[in-house]
Design a protein around this nucleic acid. Structure first.
Lengths: 327, 327
DNA sequence: CTGAAAGCGCTAACAA
DNA sequence: TTGTTAGCGCTTTCAG
């Protein structure tokens, strides 16, 4: 930077102003600075900026790449953050690298807040690691004090699915749950409640799953072996539904004539023409927007009380659900 | 850090040594430093380290999250980098955020080299942006001078697929390509060559695709409409194969009895029990290892000539391929 | 084994 | 509109 300044014949501070688009430099100077920078191949050094600035204007993002829905959220976070003048620092949660380590990395880079997407473990220990840095969890497993949460009303989503199916005439509706995965608990409870509300308590059947395709396939095989199939299945998420769907197709059943299937997330998977899955939509753009907003409220607007932001999901009806075959 | 030093009653420099695990501090001092840090909640500041250190020991990673294979590579990069004492800085390529911007971010953070996974555009402009920073491309679309490349021998992989299918008795083998996507060109050429080598030039049929599920589904529908199905299909990648497979299943065909299908990547998708796709494997662990090694050679061992590292792929035979039905 | 001092590249507060 | 100064938190070098 001093090279650029020397070349133009001005002070470093002025060059700094120009690069930050701050007022206080004549347009002639601006031009000359940019030209000199171009010629010298100068690029501002983020590390030095980070060190010197009072604010880093960086949001840390903790994510896994294994769930299409989470991927969608990350993608949506970029424009959402930019709108408020923030940058994103990414850190992946992968095997052999626990969440704690990932958080440490983001903190070391001076992230002002950390957005965690679909963490599988409790945020409690992260709170102690993060200290005063605001934490925002998207679709967490469990809540913790001091953490903002953005999530969709899972029970409501499941209720919509059950309403839709009963409206079509279904009574034997089975749920394949997500075990201890994020939001699974709420979806399970929502299923029970909705079934009771429709007077279908005796048809309540919950099979264990973990949001993976294989868990869906396993559950489907189990149902096939039992011989007594339900007329509809609500899977814990789209991936699980995918496993159920394909396993049934392979077994020669037709969907939705033999069985109706509902997923959760309305991820790209559900939208594929040959999957064409009725699914409960969580709007990733909206989720991302609200997560960033929560961070901004903490950082720029002085909010200190926790927020629990709940979005209403919407059921997207596609070709995997229909009336049950008359029996 | 000065707080910690003051608390223990030593100089900052000593505390620094301790945190970097450098020799030159007594074990008593070490203990006391760590304890004081714990009590004060001290965490070394990455920005300051980055600024001061002569080497950042950071590798930038540019990636998309949409292809399961790429995700696998990113995950494998963490341990590979750590083995050489490097950290990873992640930057996603998403819509509205071009590769150039992503590279700028990584460069600003002082990445010593940048590993690019499956970029869809030519690396040529990135070379000018990166300047002297080594670039390593994993499965690129096109090669560029000054860039190391790690890839699998795509033509060899396709040849193995063709060999496998002809060995089963197939003659009408169609390829659904990846258009302008990474490695698609080579796979297409490999297909043509292998078919000719088996004297099946007249059976060469290439349908357009783009590595997405939908492109596979589209191609499959087209084949169904034509009425004249090949006995086997080699898809450009696993996602495409997935679209083909499901579309055929939906249409009432059985795989592999009616049609055999081969994918490419051997991603998690192919490994799912209900997909069970014969696929050409690219070993992500090995790819990641070699990419990091290429960076290390440039950075620590003074290599300046470009390298083109080609891995041998291996065909993983699963349930989606079998002998053709006698006609 | 330990400490003092310089400075990485930049920004913020002030002075001109 | 521009320049001066001080220092962010750490590492490095050199001297004890």
């Amino acid at each position: 930077m001093s090279d650029v300044a020397a070349r133009v014949g001005v002070s470093q501070a002025l060059v700094s102003l120009v690069f930050r688009n701050q007022p206080g430099a004549s347009s002639l100077t601006r031009q000359r600075v940019f030209q000199a920078a171009e010629e010298l191949g100068y690029r501002p050094d983020t590390a030095a900026q980070l060190l010197r600035r009072t604010r880093s204007r960086q949001l840390g993002v903790l994510f896994t790449m294994r769930h299409p829905h989470d991927v969608g959220v990350v993608e949506a976070l970029y424009p959402a953050a930019e709108k408020h003048g923030y940058h994103l620092a990414l850190s992946a949660m992968v095997a052999d690298r626990d969440e704690r380590q990932a958080v440490e990395q983001l903190l070391g880079l001076r992230s002002e807040a950390i957005i965690i997407i679909g963490a599988e473990s409790s945020p409690q220990n992260l709170v102690t690691v993060a200290g005063p840095t605001p934490l925002i969890e998207i679709n967490p497993c469990t809540r913790a004090a001091g953490v903002d949460v953005v999530r969709t009303a899972n029970s409501k989503g499941i209720r919509q699915a059950v309403d839709h199916l009963t409206g079509l005439g279904h009574r034997a509706i089975t749920h394949i749950d997500g075990g201890t995965m994020p939001a699974a608990d709420e979806r399970r409870r929502g299923y029970r409640t909705a079934m009771r509300r429709h007077g279908l308590a005796e048809h309540i059947q919950i099979l264990p799953g973990d949001y993976t395709e294989e868990s869906g396939a396993r559950a489907a095989r189990e149902l096939l072996q039992q011989g007594e199939l339900p007329t509809a299945i609500i899977a814990g998420n789209d991936r699980c539904a995918h496993g159920v769907l394909n396993t049934f197709l392979r077994a020669g059943l037709t969907v939705p004539t033999d069985v109706s299937i509902v997923g959760y997330d309305d991820s790209q998977l559900a939208q594929l023409s040959f999957i064409d899955l009725t699914s409960v939509r969580q709007d990733v753009t909206e989720v991302a927007r609200l997560a960033v907003q929560a961070a901004v409220e903490r950082l720029d607007e002085g909010r200190t009380v926790d927020r629990d932001i709940v979005l209403d999901p919407t059921l997207v009806v596609r070709g995997s659900t229909g009336p049950p075959r008359a029996r």
